[in-house]
Simulated scan of single mutants.
Amino acid sequence: MGQALLRVHGLAKGFRSGSEQIPVLADLALTLNQGESMALMGRSGSGKSTLLNLLCGLEHPDAGVIDIDGQHFDGSQAHDRRAQSRCWADLRRQRIGVVFQDANLMPAMSLLDNVRLRARLAGQDDLGCLAWLERLGIGALADRFP
Score class of each variant (00 low, 15 high):
21 Q>L: 14
129 C>P: 05
133 L>S: 02
127 L>M: 07
33 N>E: 10
59 E>G: 07
141 L>K: 14
146 P>E: 01
23 P>W: 12
14 G>Q: 04
55 L>D: 12
122 A>I: 06
84 Q>C: 05
91 L>I: 03
121 L>K: 03
122 A>T: 12
78 A>L: 04
112 L>I: 02
3 Q>Y: 09
73 F>Q: 03
144 R>P: 00
107 P>Y: 04
7 R>I: 10
64 G>H: 12
130 L>M: 13
98 V>E: 04
19 S>V: 05
87 C>S: 12
118 R>W: 00
117 L>V: 08
22 I>Y: 09
32 L>E: 02
72 H>Y: 09
114 N>I: 10
62 D>H: 09
25 L>S: 03
40 L>T: 09
82 R>K: 09
142 A>Q: 08
111 L>P: 00
63 A>S: 13
125 D>M: 00
48 K>Q: 07
23 P>F: 06
121 L>E: 08
131 A>I: 09
60 H>I: 00
39 A>D: 08
16 R>V: 09
8 V>F: 06
45 G>D: 08
99 V>N: 02
119 A>E: 02
112 L>C: 04
26 A>I: 13
15 F>G: 11
134 E>G: 01
143 D>L: 02
57 G>W: 05
141 L>V: 05
145 F>G: 02
58 L>P: 04
70 G>A: 13
106 M>D: 07
86 R>K: 14
51 L>H: 04
115 V>M: 05
94 Q>C: 10
129 C>I: 13
3 Q>H: 14
126 D>E: 15
109 M>K: 09
37 S>T: 12
141 L>M: 14
93 R>L: 14
46 S>P: 10
15 F>A: 14
129 C>K: 07
12 A>S: 15
41 M>A: 15
16 R>T: 08
108 A>E: 12
32 L>Q: 08
78 A>W: 01
138 I>H: 01
112 L>Y: 06
50 T>F: 05
28 L>P: 12
36 E>S: 04
131 A>Q: 15
119 A>L: 01
140 A>I: 00
52 L>K: 05
43 R>N: 01
24 V>K: 05
10 G>Y: 13
108 A>G: 06
42 G>C: 08
115 V>A: 13
75 G>Q: 11
74 D>V: 08
102 D>E: 13
55 L>A: 07
35 G>C: 05
16 R>I: 07
27 D>W: 04
33 N>C: 07
14 G>H: 08
61 P>Q: 09
26 A>D: 15
92 R>V: 09
13 K>C: 01
4 A>D: 10
18 G>W: 13
65 V>D: 01
75 G>E: 14
87 C>T: 10
106 M>V: 13
12 A>G: 14
32 L>H: 10
85 S>G: 11
87 C>A: 14
80 D>I: 00
34 Q>W: 03
103 A>L: 08
105 L>D: 01
80 D>N: 13
135 R>N: 02
87 C>F: 02
30 L>Q: 03
44 S>V: 06
143 D>Q: 14
36 E>Q: 10
81 R>M: 12
118 R>A: 03
86 R>I: 14
85 S>C: 03
61 P>C: 05
